[in-house]
């Protein structure tokens, strides 16, 4: 055995390897995004304006945050259908705390994130401890939360008129104060901050590594003596907290909690995740990918509208893009094995 030389390469292959696979995936999506931007700029002189770019980023911000939450769940090999209505429910609780109870601004922020975390914890408990398949558990949560949103508001929107400054969370612009030429809304900054933070958690912490491990081989983890149920619940709780941030963003952007909103948002978030190269079978995926996925969706929607393409065709285009993105990824995987 020992006579056979082990093929260890001289350079440091682990670094090369790690970044090579990860970046290839992101590069694909990123290149598509750039090409789309160029294409729309050529087709319409009105597309590439500061205001419109900001509008695109703002349109991507809520879906982007939701996509980040869903990415976590999908990497564990699960799926989350409840993020749309969970977001709404978080916004509603925030509104009740601020408007109905008249509490100070920061309590609303805490309430929204906490509500999401608790809802995520409950989803996680259904999935990890009660062994309900994620699709079913989160489908149930989707309906439960939608119902609760309608009940707790009497099905009427709650406005944040008593909380001056609440709309500044998403709509205000700290960047604009420093660089008046670039009024980037805070909502976009929050999206990037969440993306950075969750990327860090995924790549550098125990929780992150277990997220991938659960998606790779949950049973092996369990048989290695890892408390898989606890970790999985923790991941769902984290995802819920992130959804709470999305709830804050949409409440602030609309300056109201709209209890009827939220259905269908989960599918768009899943679409962003998938376009970003995350595998629905779990075990692999990146936050940057999902972020780019959300941007691709926003750019496509905005670009086609600026070009005044009929709305029916916009929907068709979105469907085709999703299929094309995943197919291209499949081709690439077959090549590299």
């Amino acid at each position: 055995m020992t006579e056979i030389p082990t093929p260890r390469t001289a350079s440091s292959p682990e670094r090369v390897n790690f970044f090579a696979t990860a970046t290839a995936q992101r590069m694909l999506a990123f290149a598509s995004l750039i090409i789309m931007l160029i294409m729309f700029s050529v087709l319409s002189p009105n597309f590439m304006q500061t205001n419109n770019m900001i509008a695109i980023l703002q349109a991507a911000s809520i879906n982007g945050v939701l996509a980040i939450a869903v990415t976590l769940i999908i990497i564990t090999g699960g799926i989350d259908l409840s993020v749309g209505t969970m977001m709404t429910f978080c916004a509603v609780i925030c509104a009740i705390v601020l408007t109905n109870l008249g509490m100070p601004l920061w309590t609303g922020v805490v309430a929204a994130i906490l509500t999401g975390a608790v809802a995520g914890f409950i989803s996680g408990t259904f999935v990890a401890r009660m062994m309900i398949p994620p699709f079913i558990a989160t489908l149930g949560m989707m309906m439960i939360l939608r119902g609760l949103s309608l009940i707790s508001t009497g099905a009427r929107p709650i406005y944040f008129n008593n909380t001056p400054g609440f709309d500044q969370i998403a709509r205000g612009s700290l960047v604009g104060k420093v660089f008046p030429a670039l009024p980037l809304p805070n909502g976009v900054l929050i999206l990037f901050a969440v993306a950075l933070a969750v990327s860090f958690i995924l790549n550098r912490t125990v929780l992150g590594r277990y997220t991938y491990a659960l998606g790779s081989n949950e049973e092996a983890m369990r048989l290695s003596g890892v408390n898989t149920a606890a970790w999985k619940t923790a991941i769902y709780t984290l995802a819920g907290g992130i959804v709470g941030i999305a709830g804050l963003l949409i409440a602030s952007r609309l300056n109201s909690a709209q209890p009827a909103l939220g259905m269908g948002y989960e599918l768009e978030a899943i679409a962003a995740v998938v376009i970003g190269g995350t595998s629905l079978s779990g075990g692999r995926g990146t936050i940057l990918g999902s972020l780019i996925g959300a941007l691709i969706i926003a750019v496509l929607a905005n670009g086609l509208r600026v070009l005044s393409v009929a709305q029916e065709w916009q929907i068709v285009a979105m469907g085709l893009i999703i299929i094309a993105a995943v197919y291209a990824d499949q081709l690439r995987r077959q090549k590299t094995g």
């Binding site: 590069m27 290149a31 750039i34 087709l43 393409v309 893009i321 197919y327 690439r332």
Partner: peptide, 18 residues
Amino acid sequence: MLNRRSLMASAVALAVAS
């Protein structure tokens, strides 16, 4: 592959637009 995917995306959007 990189080109393939991007081209595909662009082609779809262009086709729809035109």
